[in-house]
Design a protein around this nucleic acid. Structure first.
Lengths: 193, 193
DNA sequence: GTATTATTTCGGTAGGAACTGAAATAACTG
DNA sequence: CAGTTATTTCAGTTCCTACCGAAATAATAC
């Protein structure tokens, strides 16, 4: 079994992308490999195709399974575990987002709430900090709510929503609200450096 | 000048979050600090408040300015550069997304297009890979288009859009499409491991 | 039961990103 | 102009993550 040129390039690129988003390279590569693979692969295959140690593959697979984007499958008459990725991109995206919300957003909200409460009885310089923290908290909460709604959408509905962004943009576009053109008030303030 | 307890906690947490999203810790900390700071700070202040070397601050600031979330400001009668973060959370979010789109999405699309083209004249096992790459390409394109529309929205409009997610979710919710309950077809297949 | 094969765990290591301090450069002052 | 202060660059170091290989464990077969 061999990797095609296209598959190789994709796997390598996906590894880099993963790294840019805080996901370890090998893990992203394993995921990419399983994603484009026509059939489930065993750990040995993966190890050979990606040229990484068997144990590294084991660790990566465990993590991917924890994330929920890879599952273990069995073939009758073969003891070896095989692995298969979620094949629906949108579903994969959804699962990853759910996990990141749980691991990062929720704790961030908790921390921000704590900080805001703590800064409640501060002096006037602390007031500004509290206001900023409150704004940040409001934002993270908003994204969280938004996400939890997204999470309940089916794949076709999600596609509609994404495409709907285009319509909403036309409706509420900045051009109609800001006559100065495509530059917003905030970014305009950053003209001179 | 001293950091309040709340500010300290926020800065540290933001550093961790940054790391989880592929942004170097110090850089995220510097950004967090400037975000909650009532007035612009000079590099020396930052170095002292975060207890990192002056040069590390210099590098982080340069990067943050490149990203477009921090700007250099000057105070009359003082030669030292001061630094200030974008204070609008939504605007910050928008700027970061624009940058990530440019740095990651666009190259990814280019690569996927290349891979799909290359896999065009492959055999039947390669067909499956090509299909998957095509699906991935379609997805990334969709996100990109969606994003570029989002980018044109003003902050209040963007808030509307986020909150609109809730409405759309109610309209297209999975519950009405999938009578089996909250578990989707794809994730249901992952019941046994 | 023992033998064989598959898988995971774990201690040690290598590689790389982040960080520092010193030196170079730039910006300003009188 | 020399002198002073601010800033950046860069070579070396430190530290941490990812990784490997060996050993332990688990699963299956006979």
């Amino acid at each position: 079994m061999e990797l095609t040129k296209a598959a190789q390039k994709f796997v390598l690129h996906w590894g880099e992308m993963g790294q840019a988003w805080g996901i370890n390279r090998t893990m992203a590569q394993v995921h990419a490999l399983l994603f484009v693979s026509p059939e489930a692969l065993d750990a040995e295959d993966i190890s050979r195709l990606l040229d990484v140690s068997r144990s590294n593959v084991s660790t990566s697979l465990r993590e991917l399974i924890t994330w929920g984007v890879v599952k273990r499958v069995h073939i009758i008459g073969d003891r070896r575990d095989r692995f298969e990725a979620l094949k629906d991109v949108m579903e994969t995206f959804r699962v990853i987002m759910a996990e990141r919300k749980r691991r990062e957003m929720d704790p961030t909200i908790a921390l921000l709430e704590h900080c805001v409460a703590e800064a409640k009885d501060g002096g006037s310089p602390e007031d500004y900090t509290r206001e900023q923290l409150e704004k940040m908290l409001e934002f993270v909460r908003m994204v969280t709510v938004w996400y939890s709604q997204i999470d309940r959408l089916s794949t076709p509905a999600l596609q509609k929503l994404f495409r709907g962004g285009a319509k909403l943009a036309t409706m509420f576009g900045r051009g109609t609200q800001d006559d100065a053109g495509p530059v917003t008030k905030d970014s305009a303030a950053y003209g001179s450096s």
